[in-house]
Design a binder for these strands. Structure first.
Lengths: 172, 172
DNA sequence: ATGATATGTCAGTCTTGTTGACATATCTCA
DNA sequence: TGAGATATGTCAACAAGACTGACATATCAT
């Protein structure tokens, strides 16, 4: 166990002072960065009558063709009722299509339509612009370091799954 | 203008291919990391009958004693009606107190009570644990690099304000 | 004194999450 | 083949947290 972790669990000296002061800078910067990061897509989504929930669904379906409902629920960590509401709208408006599974006919395999892929790409490109601007004029190893930091911030019990989803071999 | 930015605005060659593929990894890791990052406090907040909105208000008031309503609204980017609902509860339950401004008696200067500071610290400590774990076994320069990345992700028009708020000389 | 500013509040709406209950189709396995 | 498990869909009610619009009050600034 690294010192930094152990130090948080028991006082380093006999005093009742805190082991380490909270990392207020990273906590607050994370809040502000996320606040602005999601604000770009919001403006576009408004034009389509969609919200952030639609964005998340469309994004992961577009990126993972053939995704099932169960897998999507596990990614988003919401209830099937919540998912169904926004998914139904995306299907009705022809951004996503739902095909009955071939191996298991109970499953619904989700695919983005051409229109869906186009919107997903538009939104991802917006966010990529912001990321690219942030990384420009930073050390070349910055991207890899940020990527590893974010991955390590995720619950360890889920990080293998996320790693596979984000970097993993194309199969869903 | 850096090449990386210009490249996103016009195709590098005469072809109609995209300049750069979207940075799906950083986009998705940001989503998953934020999802888990806010989930730790949620469990504690539940016990107090509070939600994430209360957490954000309590956090910034605790960190910036004497914060005004207007400044808080600017940080959170929500309407005063939304803020008022949660702020009222925090005041009623004695986590925050509102004092009439001395220089300008129209203002309300917000302060966390002892109880409020205690809860804010408990929540910040939880998040600090996650951050510390993520940074442990990473390069020593990782923290600074992540910090600079997050700051650069923020809208440039707001980054000076955020920098002052997060790192800045104690005054509010 | 007058207009601008900081805050508070009422009322209604929207999005996105929740729980609980139940229906249907399909698969798996004894 | 039949029973139970599984994947999905749907109805209804509810809650948090955001929004708009309108209006009130106190205080400041000129």
């Amino acid at each position: 166990m690294p010192d930094a972790i152990r130090a948080l669990k028991s006082p380093p000296s006999g005093k009742d002072t805190l082991a380490e002061p909270p990392t207020y800078d990273l906590i607050e910067l994370f809040f502000f960065a996320y606040r602005d990061f999601v604000s770009d897509p919001d403006r576009i989504l408004d034009e389509y009558g969609f919200g952030r929930a639609h964005h998340r669904v469309l994004h992961f379906v577009s990126r993972n063709p053939g995704l099932t409902i169960a897998e999507l629920l596990d990614i988003l960590r919401i209830t099937k009722q919540s998912l169904n509401r926004v998914l139904k709208e995306l299907i009705e408006k022809n951004f996503i299509e739902s095909r009955t599974g071939t191996a298991d006919r109970r499953q619904r395999l989700l695919h983005a339509t051409a229109k869906g892929h186009e919107l997903a790409l538009k939104l991802a490109t917006l966010q990529t612009c912001r990321i690219t601007r942030a990384l420009s004029e930073m050390e070349p190893e910055a991207k890899d370091m940020v990527s590893r930091y974010l991955l390590r911030l995720i619950d360890p019990s889920d990080s293998a799954h996320v790693k596979h989803l984000v970097f993993g071999s194309e199969e869903t």
